[in-house]
């Protein structure tokens, strides 16, 4: 009985993979047995898509920039909203683990690196949000709102990934900073919809009063929506100005750069917090 099976000297990388896989597997098992988050996460944007699409289906032709239909315009916004909402919930499982003490069980184990706890959450939520976004894209295509080409699809995925990473970092940070899940849900509730409305998801900047235009032009969601809208619009050119913001023209490259900086910034921001909470 005395010879320990676990030895601290075996290959660090293999151990890291083993523990991260196990933690990720747990999250997917939970999802498989309680698929309501997955279903609700698709259903809500779907309702947006159908209701808002119908609401503005009789809007005069040529009202929107580029002369596209409202359904096509809305598609990009709803795809981004889907990924955003999913990622915003990333902190919830972690928060429940903190509150119910399951996290302590993980911390008693000789994890190779406690980043594996964070990494598992990121892998899980990224996969979940991409599946949900793809489901919405497929539905939008069926509704006749178009489908991006191969290069366009690549751009859509890269953009979504960047946004999901950034929002996941934010949500995980909140999950460790806030005292309980009630507070976390409250924060998610307060920010979710207003961020959607204060972006270019539902209407272009030109429709907005100046103050809202400023908000929308600073909203991270806008920087994800515009490249995806461009990917749907046709030949891919990231150097083209996608957003005529009050502070100046914004190209596709700038959109992606902003998302990248945001992601990096947020991960740097939450790192000390995670280090402290997981030390």
């Amino acid at each position: 009985m005395t010879s320990p099976v676990a030895t601290p000297t075996s290959a660090p990388m293999a151990e890291l993979v083993q523990e991260t896989t196990a933690l990720t597997r747990r999250l997917f098992l939970q999802l498989q047995r309680r698929p309501s988050t997955l279903v609700a996460g698709v259903l809500q944007p779907l309702i947006w898509l159908v209701l808002f699409g119908a609401l503005f289906s009789r809007a005069p032709e040529g009202l929107l920039p580029g002369g596209i239909s409202y359904g096509r315009f809305l598609g990009a916004g709803v795809i981004v909203f889907t990924a955003f909402s999913a990622a915003l919930n990333a902190g919830l499982p972690v928060m429940f683990d903190r509150e119910f003490g399951f996290l302590n069980r993980l911390l008693v184990a000789p994890l190779r690196s406690r980043s594996s706890i964070v990494l598992a959450s990121v892998i899980y939520i990224t996969t979940l949000s991409l599946i949900q976004s793809l489901a919405i894209m497929a539905t939008a295509a069926l509704l006749g709102y178009g489908w991006p080409g191969m290069a366009g699809l690549g751009l859509v995925l890269v953009t979504l990934l960047l946004l999901v990473f950034a929002v996941t970092a934010l949500s995980l940070g909140l999950a460790f900073a806030l005292p309980g899940h009630i507070e976390l849900i409250a924060v998610i509730f307060v920010f979710n919809l207003p961020l959607l409305f204060a972006s270019t998801a539902l209407a272009p900047l030109s429709f907005m009063p100046p103050w809202l235009g400023w908000l929308a032009a600073l909203n991270p969601l806008t920087f994800a929506i515009e490249p995806i809208r461009a990917a749907y619009a046709g030949p891919l050119d990231l150097s083209v100005v996608l957003l005529d913001a009050p502070y100046g023209p914004v190209s596709g490259y700038v959109c992606l750069l902003v998302l990248m900086l945001l992601t990096a910034g947020l991960f740097l921001l939450i790192r000390p917090l995670l280090n402290r909470k997981l030390s």
Partner: peptide, 14 residues
């Protein structure tokens, strides 16, 4: 069983 498997992986058992 799944919980024990998880635990085993956290202790890096083969």
């Amino acid at each position: 069983r799944e919980l024990l498997q998880l635990q085993g992986d956290l202790y890096h058992l083969r």
